[in-house]
Design a protein around this nucleic acid. Sequence first.
DNA 1: CTTCATGCAAAACATTTGCAGCTGG
DNA 2: CCAGCTGCAAATGTTTTGCATGAAG
Lengths: 149, 149
Amino acid sequence: MSDPTARLDEMLAKLRERHFRITPQRLAILETLAVSDGHPSVESVFAEVRKKFPTTSLATVYKTITLLKELNEVLELGFSDGSNRYDGSKPTPHPHMICTRCKKIIDPDLTSLEQLTREASQKTGFKIVTQRLDFFGICPECLQEKTSG
Amino acid sequence: MSDPTARLDEMLAKLRERHFRITPQRLAILETLAVSDGHPSVESVFAEVRKKFPTTSLATVYKTITLLKELNEVLELGFSDGSNRYDGSKPTPHPHMICTRCKKIIDPDLTSLEQLTREASQKTGFKIVTQRLDFFGICPECLQEKTSG
DNA sequence: CTTCATGCAAAACATTTGCAGCTGG
DNA sequence: CCAGCTGCAAATGTTTTGCATGAAG
């Protein structure tokens, strides 16, 4: 999708602009979020960052992600079962396709979402600020597997 | 939207069919979920049920709602901040308009959702099983208020 | 240097679970 | 009767918070 290096630079620029410090731990967290296109969980970010900085705490990962959310530099895909996932490569709200078998999450490009949003606004009188759209199902790869889970 | 009494009867029929017991507490929980069109939270269901049965425990409300979810007789609107809401009057997945100011949730009737789902399926090869769509914004009533929050 | 970030442990939440006693069918 | 339900309290799992130490700028 977007260039990971460019995204990392954008994130760093935003931090500097707001005078937040760029610590080694933060840099590692930003890198992980900017590079991964797999919508990582907090735990997987934590595990990744620990490879470089073994003393990093979970609290720091949470704090940094909270900061990035406030700066609109990461998109949180919250699920009520606590399996939250994060998208740092494309931080603006967009639809997701979620495979309920392998847990993969991909970003579809849907042209008719704009039309749907317009319809929703017209029919309800809401001033729509943002939206969240998830499709749940089975991805092509899992569909090919004979054995059903 | 749908007739509350009819919904309650459907829920009761499903419980009986599967040989689950209909206790006074359960009945009160079902009634609350079937009647309210305001997408109540667990706490508000609990508060409502307590009016009739003051000894009811939160655990029972949770257990009953979990049961109803498994029977597809209630739709859970989970939010990652823990402010989950429930829709017993229309238990099949459908879009929601959520006012971020007054927390009201209403059900829009969107004709172009089907088209969007088709597009998502075609472009990704997913076999789509269900979906979740929330629009966040300001409702007409809140828009009319002069003071901004 | 001064302020902000880190890391630890404890706290805070909503939700789930274990279990003794109760009760619907 | 007795399997399943209730209510209590304890456990769980994730996220947040307080605070002393450490490091970015």
